[in-house]
Design a protein around this nucleic acid. Structure first.
Lengths: 201, 201
DNA sequence: GCGTAATCTAGAACAAGTTTCAGTAACTGC
DNA sequence: GCAGTTACTGAAACTTGTTCTAGATTACGC
């Protein structure tokens, strides 16, 4: 069993780590207030007390910054899920529970969610690595929900395909809700619908 | 049965209609050449021989412009599908065929696809109406594939949920491919996987 | 501690989306 | 066919993401 370490990055000095945290905190704060367009690079720099150039050295674009923020938030969610994992009897239910719980959290900070999701969807090739990181973390979370207490078998290609489809639905559906094109009930329905792809156990 | 008319817009004079066409053509051209970032509003204006202000009168933002382009392309695809509809025996297969055929078309113009898809995913509330239009058209296409030659029954809420999930997967999967994060085979797999939600008939 | 290289700062400069405005052209109702 | 309104043009201005520069600061090997 591997330990879950932070994503590998070039090693940072303490002050650098602190700067990085300040930047992410400022981003979260601004995003929570007004969503994607309220995250303005100059404001992030000012609020985190860092020069604009430095901000760009840490995160090479606004999208990188927001995807990193997403990873950060996802990490917190993941930790929370490990503390109190869903307790339903079958894997399908556990996945639905997991996603609905995540959704509930996101409803509490719709602007923040919007900012992160927009960035994630808008990301192009240059953000590939970071998006993959988020994607892997999401996959892990769903896999853990599927396995429950069990030893967590190696996922098959089929499993991974299903998880990809679930993730796709999860993201698009969330965006539709954030844009007022889908109701909360619809998001829930979509999640339940797509989770029917998980074989009963 | 309702006739399939063009999306309703304020009535335009002939020259206005011509301007609109020129703009969309220019957009398609630029997008096909270099994708989302090559569609620059000043260039679109110049290429379509229209003042920048006029461009903005017709399409209030770059995203509006690209979503309108998407609708336009979708319309052509739809017409083509009506001429030569998929002939498979069951609805599930027909939907898979439809989406794979669309995918094949998109592989021919990856930059154009990228531009339209990025815009569609990035669109916020202000583009809600236009995105809905695209969404309805897509839904119609999938519904027609499901019904085949049959009279096309009124879709149930369940049908619509499945179609939403399919559409979500379709879009996200395409984006992942365009960004080099998924292979063509993966897109195909994802489509086949999500289509298992369509009940056998 | 000292010299050197990497990092950080403040601020200007640049790029592309969007807005604005004064003047001209095209349509509409009569 | 004309008056009045609406639409179009060309150009400048404004906004925000991104890049660049010169000088100050910090980290690091010795």
């Amino acid at each position: 069993m591997t330990t879950y370490t932070k994503a590998d990055r070039a090693p940072l000095t303490e002050r650098q780590e602190a700067r990085r945290r300040r930047i992410l905190r400022a981003t979260t704060q601004l995003a929570a207030r007004g969503g994607y367009e309220s995250v303005q690079m100059r404001e992030v720099a000012e609020l985190s007390e860092v020069a604009l150039g430095t901000l760009y050295r840490y995160f090479p674009s606004k999208v990188h910054l927001l995807v990193a923020t997403m990873y950060d938030q996802l990490d917190q969610l993941h930790a929370q899920l490990r503390r109190r994992p869903p307790r339903s009897a079958n894997s399908r239910e556990r996945v639905v529970d997991t996603l609905l719980r995540a959704f509930k959290g996101m409803q509490r900070e719709p602007h923040l969610t919007e900012a992160m999701m927009r960035a994630l969807q808008f990301a192009d090739r240059s953000v590939g690595a970071e998006v993959d990181t988020v994607s892997r973390e999401t996959t892990t979370m769903i896999l853990e929900a599927i396995s429950g207490d069990e030893p967590a078998a190696e996922p098959t290609a089929e499993d991974l395909a299903v998880i990809r489809v679930i993730t796709h639905t999860w993201h698009s559906s969330l965006i539709a809700w954030l844009n007022g094109r889908a109701s909360i009930a619809q998001v829930r329905t979509d999640i339940e619908t797509v989770c029917r792809l998980i074989p009963e156990d």
